[in-house]
């Protein structure tokens, strides 16, 4: 038990001392996770919109595929991407393995189904109505789709934050595709794994606390940015 208190203390110390390893890991985590969430949202938001808005053959199949993909273990996603970027694989020439870019690819794959499914669920109820109304009022297809997303912005932001939370906290992709290279692909979570494997439980736990604090800060930031101008 006492290691929990010890951890809290060492978390504070690490932050106060501007511990270089910690900030490198935090930086990598933030860069990689934000990039993958950003790219995933560029794919998943339109995809979720299209699935919610239009009927097409095989729609139910796509939906159940998406829901199944939510259960994908991160390591499996990692190995799947590895199959494409390993050097004798189709994309091997790009030398992506063990780089942040590889982690981004894996994490994008990991959360595109998640954000798509959540966006779809968020839009489902109103999408046809809002899209028609905006279109009838003269909005272009892009502007009308944007209106649909922005009418459900709370749920859409929640979908994005859920995706972000999943990539920030995952280990499998980061470990298999990133390799936990210090200063390059070591994220907070792979650092936690490393510390745990070395028996340094309190510093592993301290890293967990720092990671949570960071995500909390991002959540507050988004809420103050987005929540200010809310009406109904």
């Amino acid at each position: 038990m006492e290691f929990l208190f010890e951890s809290l203390w060492s978390a504070i110390l690490m932050i106060l001392h501007l511990d270089r390893d910690l900030f490198e890991a935090l930086g990598t985590t933030l860069r990689v996770s934000l990039t993958s969430t950003g790219i995933a949202s560029l794919i998943a938001l339109p995809l979720g919109f299209v699935i919610a808005r239009y009927d097409f053959p095989g729609k139910r199949g796509v939906q159940s595929l998406l829901r199944t993909a939510l259960a994908l273990p991160t390591v499996v996603v990692g190995l799947f991407v590895y199959a494409f970027i390993a050097r004798n694989a189709p994309l091997g020439d790009m030398r992506l393995l063990f780089t942040p870019a590889a982690m981004v690819i894996g994490q994008v794959l990991l959360i595109v189904p998640l954000i798509t499914a959540l966006t779809h669920a968020a839009l489902q109820e109103n999408v046809k109505l809002v899209h028609e109304e905006a279109t009838l009022l003269g909005a272009s297809p892009v502007a009308a789709s944007w209106k649909v997303l922005s009418e459900s912005r709370h749920a859409v932001v929640t979908a994005l934050m859920t995706g972000f939370g999943r990539v920030v906290s995952e280990v499998g992709v980061a470990l298999v595709l990133g390799g936990n290279i210090r200063g390059l692909t070591r994220t907070v979570t792979t650092a936690i794994t490393l510390e745990t494997s070395q028996g340094h439980f309190s510093s592993a736990f301290a890293l967990g606390i720092v990671l949570l604090a960071l995500v909390l800060m991002i959540n507050i930031l988004i809420q103050t940015l987005g929540g200010r101008r809310e009406a109904v």
Binding site: R31, T35, I39, A101
Partner: peptide, 22 residues
């Protein structure tokens, strides 16, 4: 406006990409 928002969002993504791949 819509354009401002889209631009902001793209900027965030671009910055993230830039720092990520730098």
């Amino acid at each position: 406006g819509i354009r401002t928002r889209v631009a902001l969002w793209l900027a965030v993504v671009a910055i993230a990409c830039w720092t990520g791949c730098g």
